[in-house]
């Protein structure tokens, strides 16, 4: 086992190569998943707030459209 980790004396080079590759690939995947989750949450919140907004817009013709923008 120690022989395996020693990599014939090149442990520092071999293991840092594999560690870097793992770091980049796992990091990229994690960032991607995080971005996807947050985008989906935002979309759901937007869609959830949409139907009442439409009704209000239809009923209250007096309400200015500009007032609705700020709520989003």
């Amino acid at each position: 086992m120690t022989e395996f980790f020693a990599m014939g004396g090149y442990a520092a080079y071999v293991w840092s190569s594999y560690a870097l590759a793992a770091l980049v690939m796992v990091g990229l995947l994690a960032a991607t998943l995080k971005a996807l989750r947050s985008a989906e949450t935002t979309l759901k919140a937007l869609e959830g707030s949409r139907p009442p907004r439409r009704r209000r817009a239809r009923n209250g013709a007096a309400a200015s459209p500009a007032a609705e923008v700020g709520e989003g």
Binding site: A35, L43, V69, G72
Partner: peptide, 20 residues
């Protein structure tokens, strides 16, 4: 996964735009 996120992002943009 990234494409899915980008598409959702575009949807959010359009919704914000039509609302604005």
């Amino acid at each position: 996964l990234r494409l899915r996120a980008e598409i959702v992002q575009r949807k959010i943009q359009t919704m914000r735009l039509t609302e604005a």
